[in-house]
Design a protein around this nucleic acid. Structure first.
Length: 559
RNA sequence: AGGCCUGUAGCUCAACUGGUAGAGCAACGGACUCUUAAUCCGUGGGUUGGGGGUUCGAGUCCCCCCGGGCCUACCA
């Protein structure tokens, strides 16, 4: 079969005149002593391509098939070409070259697209003129993005392969060498990986490379997307309205955390990045919506850890005329649906445990959980008793005499109960001190109607019957303000506009918050939040310019 | 913020108690029309994160700085 198409050249109008010597002079490339040998080499190749009239960055390519689909649908009986017959399975694909095996006048190379990697094959006489020798083998590299069209066949070695027999085009020249990761499969099907890119810093800073060379990373982020889409569909199906509330807020609230601050120039006003969506969403219930939700970033100016990134994704839902008991049922139904969407099964592996998100989940009260874990019944115990238990009986670290009742109970719970709850468990009925926005328990003194959902030892959801009594709310705010005055910089300030809204009347309501990042961690088996956030926050990269700028800033600050 | 670990070629890693910085892959030149970690022959590639110190001599020892990881603390 003769080649009908060529390694495409640029339109004539743009084509440079013939150069007798395509070896570029140093001045043709961006001069830089910083470039590595391989980077310099690729810039020279780019110049040489242009000199030959090959556009290193053309505009489009018609893709009609993808790697995984071709491999899945290839049928030897129907598709394997047979001598003189026209090949029955012709495809046009595009992707990145991840491996090249050139053998004289023919070559195998691997092409990775969004679905996976497929082998491609090309022969010298598939390309016109000397393009095979002078361009394909000389000027193309691992990392380049190409488009190719031709028939699919199975090689003697048994691999489904696309022959670049009908068309072949460079789509983007890669100027930085891609780490080359190789795999070998033994007879038992075990895959051994060579030169795997494992350096965490490299992977987080250059996520784009991580995604190319560690394809399982793409799968994590596809699952994350599926999780959010499932959540959104679930809420939409129930008729709740997706809304957007301010990220920039003059008064922050809705959680106990320190905010980021910023400044609006024209208004000369201090603003805070939201730490929660809660107070705005509940204003919307005042406005008459029956159910509103928001899936968005919140920002907290706290430490970083493998469970904390300064910006993180939260889903918050508020539904009028419901209480926290109803919300528990919605939550377990939602999580069951998400687990099923990700794994085709509500049950999945997490470390050495099999976790099941099949409803209903276990329920235990806050104080019963503490009593089960420690043997101490602290319900209605006073502050000094709780302090004594934490400090002397349980001998917890970092207990100081300043801590209030709420913080002490939270500490005891976090140390003794939370890590042991692997299966999904609703912990219900929290002490009022920990929950300034939750409604007092209808039957139990000193408690609020609140639940947290713990899975795999971590809190993934938090919900309550929402406090809608404006007088009670004002008192709770004032308690927070007192704590704030006493030095607790996480206590929230009074939000007068929120109180004004409450005074108009908010229907009884149930509210829910789900930490999307943590839920993703659990459902994809990742141990660090940085592995479920595409671009986690890192310190700026070290470089000459960065250092100079940094020093200058320091000097300015001193001045 | 504190403790422990860590940074060597584009990638993955070596380099003994201080003694000439190496290997595989990648790159470059050559051979090869069904290979697959392709193979075979040959070649180049480094401010050992940065700065200072000890020493005849520092990747290695000491100090400071920068980045990263894990644990602890706050938080979800």
């Amino acid at each position: 079969m003769s080649a009908r198409y060529v390694l495409r050249r640029k339109p004539v109008a743009n084509r440079p005149t013939v150069l007798s010597n395509i070896t570029p002079s140093p001045c043709m490339s961006a001069p830089s002593a910083e470039l590595t040998e391989q980077e310099q080499r690729r810039r020279e190749e780019r110049e040489a391509l242009e000199a030959k009239g090959v556009d290193p960055y053309p505009y489009a390519w018609d893709v009609d098939a993808h790697a995984q689909e071709i491999i899945d649908t290839f049928d030897d009986d129907k598709h394997q070409p047979d001598g003189d017959e026209e090949p029955p399975y012709v495809v046009s694909i595009a992707g990145r070259i991840t491996s090249m095996r050139v053998m004289g006048k023919s070559a195998f190379f691997d092409v990775q697209d969004s679905t996976g990697t497929i082998q491609a094959y090309i022969r010298k006489n598939d390309l016109p003129d000397d393009l095979y020798d002078e361009v394909f083998t000389e000027l193309l590299d691992i990392g380049d993005i190409v488009g190719l069209k031709g028939h699919v066949f199975r090689t003697r070695m048994g691999e489904v392969t696309v022959r670049a027999g009908d068309d072949f085009q460079l789509l983007a020249k890669s100027l930085k060498p891609l780490p080359v990761v190789k795999e070998r499969e033994d007879e038992e099907g075990n895959v051994e990986v060579y030169n795997e890119v494992t350096d965490k810093e490299f992977r987080y800073r250059q996520r784009y490379v991580d995604l190319v060379v560690n394809p399982e990373v793409r799968d994590v982020f596809r699952k994350r997307s599926t999780l959010i889409r499932t959540m959104r569909d679930f809420l939409d199906d129930r008729g709740y309205l997706e809304v957007e509330t301010p990220v920039l807020q003059p008064v922050y609230g809705g959680a106990t955390a320190r905010p980021f601050t910023t400044h609006h120039n024209a208004l000369d006003m201090e603003l805070f990045l939201r730490i929660a969506d809660e107070l705005y969403l509940k204003r919307l219930l005042v406005g008459g919506f029956d159910g509103v939700y928001e899936i968005s970033k919140d920002f907290r100016n706290e430490g970083l850890s493998r469970f904390h990134n300064p910006e993180f994704t939260m889903m918050e839902l508020y539904v009028a005329y419901k209480d926290y008991g109803w919300m528990m049922e919605l939550t377990e139904t939602l999580l069951g649906a998400i687990a099923t969407a990700l794994h085709d099964d509500p049950e999945f592996e997490w470390q050495e445990h099999a976790i099941s998100l099949e409803p209903p989940f276990e329920r235990v009260t806050f104080f019963d959980a503490i009593e089960e874990a420690t043997g101490f019944d602290l319900y209605q115990a006073d502050r000094d008793r709780v302090y004594d238990v934490a400090k002397n009986e349980l001998q917890l670290d970092d207990i100081d005499g300043e801590m209030g009742l709420g913080k002490l109970l939270d500490k005891i719970f976090g140390e003794t109960v939370e890590p042991s709850l692997i299966q999904p468990t609703f912990v219900i009925d929290y002490p009022v001190e920990l929950s300034p926005l939750a409604k007092k328990h209808r039957a139990k003194e000193g408690l609020v109607e609140r639940f947290e959902l713990i899975i795999a030892g971590k809190e993934v959801a938090n919900a309550f019957s929402e406090l809608n009594d404006p007088q009670d709310q004002r008192e709770r705010f004032e308690e927070q303000a007192a704590m704030r005055a006493a030095g607790d910089d996480e206590a929230t300030p009074i939000d007068e506009d929120y109180l004004r809204a409450m005074e108009y009347g908010m229907p009884p309501a149930a509210g829910l918050g789900i930490g999307v990042d943590r839920l993703t961690m659990i459902l994809t088996g990742q141990e660090s939040i940085r592995d479920v956030i595409l671009f986690p926050l890192l310190r700026p990269e070290q470089g000459a310019a960065a250092v100079e700028a940094g020093e200058e800033t320091v000097e300015n600050d001193k001045a």
